[in-house]
Design a binder for these strands. Structure first.
Lengths: 252, 252
DNA sequence: CGGAATTTTATTGTCCGACAATAATGGGAG
DNA sequence: CTCCCATTATTGTCGGACAATAAAATTCCG
């Protein structure tokens, strides 16, 4: 009795296409560990004869597995290997889903207000000196980049990313990543309209101090303030909180 | 300047396979809204001539898009339509990623402890009478199902799902769903070992009461207690907090 | 004998064409 | 106007082919 059963609900009457059978078979082999991460996947022709189908059919199956991040070819190579899905693989898909479902900035903001303080809290418990040093460097660079809005955005993204990694919680990171991709472009709008650099540096400094002291409570509360403050900036910049994210945001 | 640019970093030197070009082209049409959700996608042969490639090539592209949830055939039909990715589509992929990355139960629990109280808080603000009624019915059924561990698990899943929906925040729901899929199977282990039905009902009743009163603070704090309590149960049941989720959990 | 250069082989990306099964569509009978 | 049937369109699958090139095997040279 498998803990997860993706193969559970399946229509018996309409016979499943062959390529999907191949997908599920290989998927099962990978998820069960029979084909371990790093193993090479047999050639298309081999799979075709093994499964008794045409190579085109195998190919379609491979595209599906590839897209799910379960198999991948090493950079510039043509051999296929079993892999664990990369964060970027699924992050991108979640991002697309958010856009197409026309999820509002508000929903994203609310989620970030939930996740970021938690990430900060976890980071305060587990951050190492290396990450702390990276954060210090980031804040210094931010101070120096007051003029350049674009660098400001990039440095802000980096700041939060370092903290996310420092949390040592990959599940939280996985949740945060796709949202941040959509959340932060809005930053550029805010920075362009308001001169928010000063507030940004102030907040980042406070958070950094809290993390340095491993002060869980402070890290959380400053991060929370920071997220709340961003929403105010968003509103002050005359952007629509309720508008779906993803398409180019316009001022009201 | 697009807000998101998935097509950004791409190797120029090694020429991109044709099927991938087709994917990106169609993807762009969908993401930009040029092909709206609900529109029919042209037939494979049409696309083939349009793009000047063979039908097999188009087919591989379609598999990719299909897997991303951007296009789908209506149940039992053969015509392809533009769609927004379903929650289940990506939820399943995230779940696979969590398993293959061997993310620990602790990481998942920590994430749920972040998300569930927030979901409860949002639900307290926005829940309607219908959902409230559904929750009441759920709690009644739970009281009646004290013996049957399996029903107990299912009812618990339902309870939290109703609250998630009531939060009216689809981004949060999107984060929660894949984790809950992996989180809850562990429930069965706990219920089997401990007689946790009583505690479960107690907690659910408190949460329900708070939601009925639209008491944001109470809803959050009872949900938090509930999640914390579950972890205790997990430990009392002698299960390993640090073990990766996904494979069958064993007692220590 | 070990490593670099070169040849051979394996593998992928793409194409052409074909055919059966069946969903979609259009048209006629009631 | 609705229901049933013939026609058409579309997909799933197959067989085979070929160029490009990565991978492997082999030769060559210091």
């Amino acid at each position: 009795m498998p803990v997860i059963d993706p193969t559970a609900v399946e229509l018996q009457t309409r016979h499943e296409p062959a390529y999907r059978v191949v997908v599920r078979s290989i998927e099962a082999k990978i998820m069960s560990g029979q084909w371990a991460v790093g193993d090479r996947v047999p050639a298309e022709t081999t799979l075709a004869t093994d499964y008794g189908v045409h190579r085109s059919t195998v190919r379609e199956a491979i595209r599906v597995l590839e897209q799910n991040g379960l198999v991948r070819r090493h950079d510039g190579g043509k051999l296929l290997y079993v892999t664990a899905p990369r964060e970027a693989d699924i992050s991108q898909k979640v991002t697309a889903a958010i856009v197409l479902h026309e999820i509002s900035f508000f929903e994203l903001w609310e989620s970030m207000r939930c996740l970021e303080p938690m990430l900060a809290e976890c980071a305060a418990k587990r951050i190492d000196d290396e990450a702390l040093e990276a954060l210090r460097a980031n804040v210094e660079k931010t101070k120096a980049a007051f003029e350049d809005k674009r660098s400001l955005v990039e440095l802000d993204i980096e700041f939060h990313q370092i903290i996310a990694r420092a949390s040592r919680n990959r599940a939280l990171q996985l949740s945060r990543e796709p949202m941040s991709q959509l959340f932060y472009p809005a930053f550029f709008n805010v920075f362009s309209r308001l001169n928010a650099g000063e507030r940004l540096v102030f907040a980042h400094e406070r958070i950094l101090q809290a993390l340095s002291r491993r002060d869980v409570t402070d890290a959380r509360s400053w991060m929370d303030k920071h997220i709340v403050d961003f929403r105010r900036g968003y509103e002050l910049a005359n952007l629509d909180i309720e508008a779906p994210v993803g398409r180019a945001q316009q001022s009201g």
